[in-house]
């Protein structure tokens, strides 16, 4: 008999009075998996991510840090092999490629490993963004010489994946009960060719845009903890996007509070 707390916040919300600056419906559920120490699923429109946290647990001697916890983040793609297996595979395929003659027909076959490599690099970059944000929010010195592992399973990707990963990670860390200095949330902004800012874009909107930026905002002072950008934009546009993200983050933090309050409502 597990408690379900799926809070779906209305329809699209207006952040800035302008209709483009709106967030898709978002929802969250905590403690939905039985094996991990903490888990959550976060849904933003059609983008959905499932997160599980294990820890503080025993750590391998090679990864042990004497004064704080070791955090590992793995993002599992929706389809395809987990990251570690891919490395082995692409490694061997690249080796083969080197021995191939520079012949057009055979080069075509190399398309798949190169594509794999590319998606792997993207994934690693995403993992690093999430890991560094979590490390900044967690008080990891309180659990030295232990390991924390965060596994993010992409259920469906319809744009703003990194921000959804960040939100799922924050809810899962909170569910685990790990000591945190502040909360964080992820907001993605896209700038379309006309120069309008679209918050929480869908995959189609991301594709049509000139630039996509994701920010992690902390709950204490609404400062930017992490930024990941793609495309070209002016300094002014960057600052506008940060301001918009900060305003959008209010919605997320209020949602976090409502969601946790609902979770504890039965034991109040």
């Amino acid at each position: 008999m597990r408690q379900r707390n799926c809070d779906f916040v209305g329809t699209t919300m207006e952040v800035d009075g302008q209709s483009t600056l709106s967030l898709r419906e978002f929802g969250c559920e905590q403690n939905l998996l039985s094996r991990p120490d903490g888990s959550s699923s976060f849904v933003q429109g059609d983008t959905s991510v499932l997160a599980g946290v294990y820890g503080p647990a025993e750590v391998k001697v090679s990864k042990e840090i004497y004064d704080r916890a070791t955090l590992e983040v793995v993002i599992q793609p929706k389809v395809g092999l987990p990251d570690c297996i891919k490395i082995l595979q692409t490694g061997s395929l690249v080796m083969q490629c080197q021995h191939l003659p520079q012949d057009g027909s055979k080069m075509l076959k190399m398309g798949s490993p190169i594509w794999n490599m590319d998606s792997r690099v993207k994934e690693r970059a995403r993992e690093q963004c999430v890991r560094e944000t979590c490390e900044a929010a967690l008080l990891s010195t309180l659990h030295p010489r232990s390991s924390l592992s965060l596994v993010l399973q992409v259920v469906h990707d319809d744009g703003s994946l990194l921000s959804c990963c960040l939100n799922a990670a924050c809810m899962a860390l909170m569910d685990t009960g790990l000591p945190m200095g502040c909360l964080f949330c992820g907001v993605t902004c896209a700038i379309d060719p006309e120069g309008h800012i679209v918050t929480d874009p869908t995959a189609q909107q991301e594709k049509n845009s000139r630039a996509v930026m994701t920010f992690a905002i902390d709950s204490a002072q609404r400062r930017v903890m992490m930024s990941s950008t793609k495309g070209s934009f002016s300094v002014n546009e960057l600052q506008q996007c940060i301001a918009v993200s900060q305003r959008a983050s209010e919605k997320f933090f209020q949602f976090y509070r409502d969601s946790v309050r609902r979770r504890y409502s039965k034991t109040l």
Partner: peptide, 23 residues
């Protein structure tokens, strides 16, 4: 506050957070 949960108090001056965790 570094954990999510219910804020509790015991007379005269003890305060803590009552949270649901597994680990």
């Amino acid at each position: 506050v570094c954990k999510s949960g219910i804020f509790r108090h015991k007379h005269p001056n003890m305060y803590w957070i009552d949270s649901q965790q597994k680990r």
